[in-house]
Amino acid sequence: MNQREVFITEVALRDGSHAVGHSYSIEQVKSVAQALDEANVPYIEVSHGDGLGGSSLQYGLSMTDEMELISAAVSVCKNSKVGVLLLPGIGTVEHLREAENLGARMARVATHVTEADVSKQHIEVAKKLGMETVGFLMMAHMVSTEKLVEQAKLMENYGADTVYVVDSAGALLPHQVKERIRALREHLTIKIGFHGHNNLSLAMANTLAAIEEGATMIDGSVRCLGAGAGNTQTEVLIAVLERMKIKTGIDLYKMMDLAEDVVAPLLDKPQEISKGSLVLGYAGVYSSFLLHANRAAKKFNVDSRNILVELGKRKVVGGQEDMIVDVARELAKK
């Protein structure tokens, strides 16, 4: 096996949960995870789109219990580590313990970019359980680099092995990613990661900017199977990095095959930058709001773009899906 220089986390089985309305089945997860394991992807994230405990009326109920999906993924992985996402306030340390017990080996603890201190309890428990632990600072476009560094340092102090800059809205521009990753490299001693969304067609450019500045933990989703317009397309990223002579240890042909033969059939239609997802990036709104906004737009007969732009103006953060109906209702009254 080649030595890896960049470590890829495949998020289609977590972020992609948004795109398929949280409908993953055990068979689907097994077939995707097995193919990813065979392609030698180091990390595979499996959870409800909003992390452990996310199955809810607020975000959408999981068709299959995520713990069963985690078990299914673990059962077919020989080398890949299965990871889970947890948002404090939604999931709890009990969910984390349960997932670890089922074989999850990486915990990614996600907070809004200004609220890192709610992750202390969960990062510490994950470390105690012996899990590789990631602090995941979401909606990173909403604050200055100084604020981001301050919050990342908190997560470093709690014991995280890596801190991620998470562009949940797909709103960051390449020079902003560079600046953020560079500042984290300067001020932190732990690994730095980047998670992009392709709403402005910048996921690849942003990811390369991040790698250039020293990020070594990178998220992607095969076929862009993630919220909004999806994430950095993993199989494409592997090819690009190979051209750049950056080692990921992942088998490119196997990735291309699984993207085409295993993942593409999961999607009702190919992921593309629709006007809705474009507005997510443009207005700086959490990517998982897209399908909820489309539904609310239909129900209240308003333009989903107006809903998303208004949500952006109100500085709504990840998890506030209930605001979508509220705003749609208000717009309909006007």
Partner: peptide, 9 residues
């Protein structure tokens, strides 16, 4: 089930 969200606006 209960969910809590902190908003820094």
């Amino acid at each position: 089930k209960a969910i809590i969200i902190l908003n820094p606006a």
